[in-house]
């Protein structure tokens, strides 16, 4: 490839870079700055203001006026810590469930004949294209107390939920209701993110040469041994890609915990939303956002590397 050619290709980066600089990178600095502003003055325009016309003194004054009060409050308040920990826990558990469910699906897709494989990829992607909000909404109708799940169980005559509820009622407990529980949040997250787990797994599994398994068989491996010694270790990049692709956005997820988790489920995405829209406390919302970004930087960097290797490998 000629150097001149490469230069021209690089010039193509200018417009998207400017756009992302203005609309993606720069706004992060604004969030950081706002998180260090005074709460009392937290209505636009926020104090302190950076006065660049005052030169170095202006910058020094600005830096001196920044304070970490908001962060102090975040650290001191149990609510934020609890939300932080439960976000991590819920995202980690859901990622684990996704791996357990997604791997067999991706593996089964690869074992199908090529024509069926293409159709199956489309079948897995299709729900991802339909509205996230609508798919989560669909689960409300299923999980709510007088919902379709209970109706279905009742129709088959099993009614384990009703029996359980009767038992619970007898000892004076509230009836079991899946909606507005953490279980519902897991169901929603697994449901919404399943395509993101299956597709990276499918991509690595599909590229594995079938001859490897033959070789393993020739060397005396049983199919199960061959899976654990050849197929699975070789699919680990896909496992990592899928896990990161699901875990990172799930930590900050808002729609699922809000609609399915009810008021007891605490997650950071919901905290940011509430601080912002209900409490109108912009500095606190920003501080929570900064804490979230800082936590996600390591997985984000890993994801970055993965993407680069995946899309630009061998160049």
């Amino acid at each position: 490839m000629s150097a001149q050619h490469r230069d021209r290709s690089r010039a193509a980066a200018i417009a998207p870079f400017l756009w992302l600089g203005l609309f993606f990178l720069f706004p992060f600095l604004l969030v950081l700055r706002l998180s260090l502003s005074d709460i009392a003055l937290a209505v636009p325009p926020y104090a302190p203001q950076l006065d660049l016309s005052a030169g170095v003194d202006g910058v020094r004054e600005f830096l001196a006026a920044l304070d970490f009060e908001t962060y102090g409050r975040l650290g001191g308040d149990r609510l934020y810590l609890a939300a932080y920990l439960s976000s991590m826990r819920i995202a980690a558990i859901s990622t684990g469930i996704l791996l357990l469910i997604g791997y067999p699906i991706a593996y089964a897709m690869v074992r199908c004949p090529p024509a069926a494989r293409r159709a199956l990829v489309l079948a897995v992607i299709l729900p991802f294209w339909t509205s996230f909000l609508i798919r989560i909404y669909a689960w409300i109708a299923i999980l709510k107390p007088a919902g379709l799940l209970n109706a279905a169980l009742g129709a088959v005559g099993v009614a384990p939920l009703n029996l359980l509820n009767a038992a619970l009622g007898a000892v004076g407990l509230a009836p079991l209701n899946l909606l507005n529980t953490e279980a519902a949040v897991h169901i929603g997250l697994v449901y919404a993110y399943l395509p993101f787990m299956v597709l990276p797994l499918y991509a690595v599994l599909e590229r594995q040469p079938a001859e490897l398994l033959e070789a393993a068989a020739d060397l005396g491996c049983t199919p199960v041994q061959a899976f654990w010694r050849v197929t699975f270790p070789m699919s680990l990049p896909g496992v990592a890609a899928g896990a990161l692709l699901c875990f990172i956005p799930m930590v900050g997820e808002f729609v699922v915990p809000d609609l399915l988790g009810g008021s007891q489920t605490l997650m950071l995405g919901k905290v940011i939303w509430t601080e912002f829209f209900a409490n109108r406390d912009w500095p606190t919302a920003s501080a929570v956002a900064v804490a979230l970004i800082v936590t996600l930087i390591v997985p984000l960097t890993l994801f970055q590397r993965q993407q680069q290797r995946l899309l630009e490998g061998g160049r």
Binding site: L20, F28, L30, V31, F254, Q307
Partner: peptide, 22 residues
């Protein structure tokens, strides 16, 4: 490339909040 790929996984609340501040 960081700026290009990061919005893929950045939680939407963060993108929304930072853009609003802008």
């Amino acid at each position: 490339s960081g700026a290009v790929y990061a919005p893929l996984v950045t939680p939407e609340v963060i993108l929304g909040l930072s853009l609003l501040l802008l």
